[in-house]
Each structure stands twice: as C-alpha cells, then as structure tokens.
Amino acid sequence: MRDSCLVILALLCSLHATFARFILPYVPENVDPPLPYQDPAFQNDVDDVPDDYFDPEVAPGLFQGDMAMNDEIYNYWRVGIRWDTFPEKLWKNRTVPYVISPLYDASDTVTIYQAIRTINFMTCVKFVPWNGKSKDYLLIWPIKYPRGCWSFVGRFGGAQIVSLEPPNQRGPNCLGTEGRAIHELMHALGVFHEQSRWDRDKFVKIHEENIIPKFKSNFDKQSLENTTYSFEYDYDSIMHYGAGFFSKEKGKPTITAKMPGGKRIGQRKGMSKGDCLKLNDLYSCFDNPKKRRKYYNVCQYMGV
C-alpha cells in the first residue's frame, strides 16, 4: 500500500512540474474523429446498440468501434500500417511523446502509466513525457463525445488524441485495468484488430446472424494484398474482439473460435506473446542482433 501511494505521489509531482513548464493545448469535450468513406450508411450510430449491452470500445461508433482513420489509411489497413506506403505514420525514432490529462484522478493516472510502462518494458518503443516542444505527441484524454475508448491509427501528426473514458456508475469503462489503455495505445502505434487478418476464417467463425446489421462492416477482413504477418493467429491478442462484440442480444456470440474445446478469444488484461512479437516486429526492434534475443525472451516470458 505504501509503495502504491509513493508511486501516485511521484506521478502527481511529475505532472505538476510538467504543467508548470508549459501550457497544455485546449482539448474540446466534443471531437469529430474521421471515418473512412463518406457513405452515410456507414456512420455507426451507437443508439442502435441494445440498452443492456455496453462496451467502451463499441461506444465511440468509429471504424470497427474504436479506430479513427480516413479513406487513405482504410485502403491499406491490415495487422499493422504499411510503413512502405505510409512512412509518415511511423513514430520517429520509435519515440512517442505523451501528455496524460489532469482531469483524471490519481488512480486512473496510475493505470494509464502502468500501460505505458508495460509497452516501454516489453518493446523498443518508448513513450516519453511531452517536453512542450515536440510537434507530434499523444493527448491521453477523457473525451466526452464520442465517449469510450478510441484512438487514431498510427501517427497522424500534431496533438493526437487517445480517448480513455474513466470509471463511472456504469462500470470501469477504459480504466478498470491497464489492458484497454494498452489496446488503444497499440492502435496509436499503428496496430489493427487481430480478427481482421486475411486468414482469420481458418481460425474463427463470424456469426453474421447475431451481428447488429448496421455494424456488419466492422467484421470485414483485410485483403491479401494488404496483409503481411510473421506470426500465427493469436486468439489471446489484446487486439482481438471479444465473443459478443456488436451482438444483437446479450449472450449471442458474434465471433467464436474454430479450435476444439471452446478456446477463449480476446482479452484485455495485457499484451499477449503475439502482441509483443508483432509490435517489436512492426517497429524493427528485432533488427538489432543484440536486442533481438532480449525482446524475444521478454515476449515469451511476459506475454499473457
């Protein structure tokens, strides 16, 4: 308990010192994140979601629920953004400056910090506190509209929002544990959902009869042309949909594993071994022979 209090105190002192050095940009309560293509039928209206079903990754009503992207990125979506096509979407020097909103209470700030510390430890990508000068950085903020957990995909330039809704009377939302924060930060690094892979139909069954009709496009998969993957399909990925995402009725699955024995799909506890490997691979962390063994071992021993 004492150690937790010391961590919180250190974080609050750090935040106070950071804010004293520079003025944070204005962040409106309502944001209009981009959606791919302008067909009005695609505009996900969360009012169509049954009242008895709420998931903070579904609530934003963006592409596949929680991803803000434009037409250009949509045309090349896959497991990770194609850096050969969009080199500008890669975070330079594998470094991601960030600001955590002062609107979060101490315990929520610690949860976000734990998510950041996990990625920093398990990969060569480094999240660093914004110095007030870097042009591109993340604003980790409790946006009120669209509410829930959502992020842009890859580096969009300038002050870039990662929305993490704090706990309220409805439940823990995005900050019950660090898992959902890791999920959205991985989107910000350029990672898409696992069940979007071209080869997914070998591993999972999509139950279209149980999906809210307006949200069926959220279960589209990538084209083979835009897909590259060096690792096997990952049921345990923190980037995988859960069994009931966008279901017409609570208890009716929209996606199930084809593996015998009722394999669990999706989790929001932490990075899986596959998540860790794919993120290190995406950011060329394995290119350095001295670091390759280190990060492979970290992924194997620390992955969920």
Rank of each mutant, 00 (worst) to 15 (best):
I119F: 10
H193F: 14
C5M: 01
I161T: 10
M1F: 02
T177M: 08
G261D: 03
I143T: 03
S247W: 04
E72Y: 11
A10G: 12
C13N: 14
L12P: 03
M239G: 06
N120R: 11
K278D: 11
C285W: 08
V128Y: 02
T228R: 07
K294L: 15
V58P: 03
E165L: 14
H193C: 11
C174R: 06
L277V: 05
Y98K: 05
K263N: 01
Q160T: 04
F22T: 06
P60M: 05
C13M: 14
A20L: 08
P40C: 01
K221P: 05
S163T: 05
E165M: 14
P25V: 06
E209V: 12
G179C: 06
S230I: 01
E194V: 09
D71R: 13
R197G: 07
Y26D: 12
T118L: 08
S107C: 00
A59S: 02
A257S: 10
F231Y: 12
Y37L: 09
R292E: 09
P33I: 07
T18P: 00
R155S: 07
I140S: 03
H193E: 15
T18Q: 14
R117F: 10
K263R: 14
Y53I: 15
D52L: 03
A106R: 04
K202M: 13
K252Q: 09
Y145D: 00
E225Q: 10
G262L: 07
V153P: 04
D199R: 08
K133G: 04
K126H: 15
F86Y: 06
I161V: 15
S14R: 10
Q300P: 00
P213I: 05
G303S: 10
N70D: 15
Y53E: 09
V79D: 10
I211L: 08
S134D: 11
N297D: 01
L185C: 03
V58S: 11
E208R: 14
I161W: 10
I238R: 02
Q169F: 12
P166L: 07
E225F: 06
A159C: 14
L12H: 01
Y301W: 02
I212Y: 12
V58R: 05
Q114H: 01
T118M: 07
K205E: 15
Y235E: 08
Y98I: 02
E249T: 12
V128D: 00
Q114S: 06
S272Q: 06
